[in-house]
Amino acid sequence: MATDKQQESHLVDEVETTGHEWDGIQEYNNPLPRWWLYTFYVCIIWSVGYWLLMPTWPLVSDFTRGYLGYSQRASVARDIEEARAAQSVYTDKIEKLSLADIRKDSELMEFAVAGGRSAFGVNCIQCHGSGASGGIAYPNLNDDDWLWGGDIEAIHQTIKFGVRSDHEDTRFGDMPAFLKDEILTASEISDVAEFTLTLSGQKADAASVARGAPIFAEQCAACHGPAGKGLREFGAPNLTDNIWLFGRDKSVIVQTVSNGRAGVMPAWSTRLDPVTVKQLALYIHVLGGGE
């Protein structure tokens, strides 16, 4: 106890107390550090200035605007403007130059393809998929099979005006519904489907194939060509290759012939600016390996 007392008195001796005493208990006077306190005061003064200058207080239907007129929305808009201005070195060139000329400049190409990629991510992946690998009824843009042509100008035109879209310059082709419109009977359709299988080297019933061949020549060759190689003017697919937009099985072919097909792609020239459309075309062209 004696040492406790000593220690206590030693501390009391060297540390200031507030002078308050309750039942023999004294309170040390250890206020906040002064630098802390002053920082706190400075913050209070600062906040008053902030209230006046910046948007701060919510009101019933509005808020206090502040004398500086600052707004985050305007700030973002300004940032976007600045970014646009910074990109104009490239975008101006893309706007002016032809697609062939853009492709001569590797730096400009890099910019255009990167821009096309991000535009693709916003506008195209909904149907064509994030990797542009498509799906049933939506073409895979990575391969070398192009319904409407795979060179840069053809791709550009497809994107600009769309396929069976509401644009007057749209690409248009018509696969008739042979059964629905009573052009062919169900058994004739079955035969022509068997024949179609042989075009891409698939196994088929020989008797049906023999019956189907003249029907194909009569009904289908006009668009798909006598050898089934397709015709890009009408977007008629090549039936001899390994790529099938809706499926390679007989049942799918029968369904296609019976009911027709009419996939739609919108015209993007009415939705996007010409620079973005060009960038998209270049990106798609690069994806496919460049026809």
Partner: peptide, 16 residues
């Protein structure tokens, strides 16, 4: 990896 591979019209396989 998106897509993992591409099948071309002649059946050959392409990776990027």
């Amino acid at each position: 990896r998106n897509p993992l591979y591409v099948t071309l019209s002649d059946g050959s396989i392409r990776n990027r």
